[in-house]
């Protein structure tokens, strides 16, 4: 098979795949927020409440915390 053709097909395939993924992601973002599963906008607070003493937006598991000095 002509390598040029293969290249074209792979190129096209990747573009379609990436487009589907990107749009799937948009869909996922808005659906899970609408259903109340997640609130993405709260992550924006991470840059603002960033003292060592501030409460994490989503703390990592409890056992990890006990281990740390």
């Amino acid at each position: 098979m002509d390598i040029k053709l293969l290249q074209g097909v792979m190129y096209f395939g990747l573009i379609v795949f990436l487009t589907v993924v990107l749009y799937g992601y948009i869909f996922h973002l808005y659906r899970s927020e609408k259903r109340g599963e997640r609130d993405y906008e709260k992550y924006g607070r991470m840059a603002l409440d960033d003292e060592l003493t501030s409460t994490p937006v989503e703390p990592i598991e409890e056992e990890r915390k006990k281990e740390s000095p």
Binding site: I3, K4, L6, Q7, M10, Y11, L14
Partner: peptide, 13 residues
């Protein structure tokens, strides 16, 4: 992957 498709196939030619 993008780089792979873009560059490699034309190498030999």
């Amino acid at each position: 992957f993008a780089g792979l498709i873009e560059i490699v196939p034309d190498f030999a030619q």
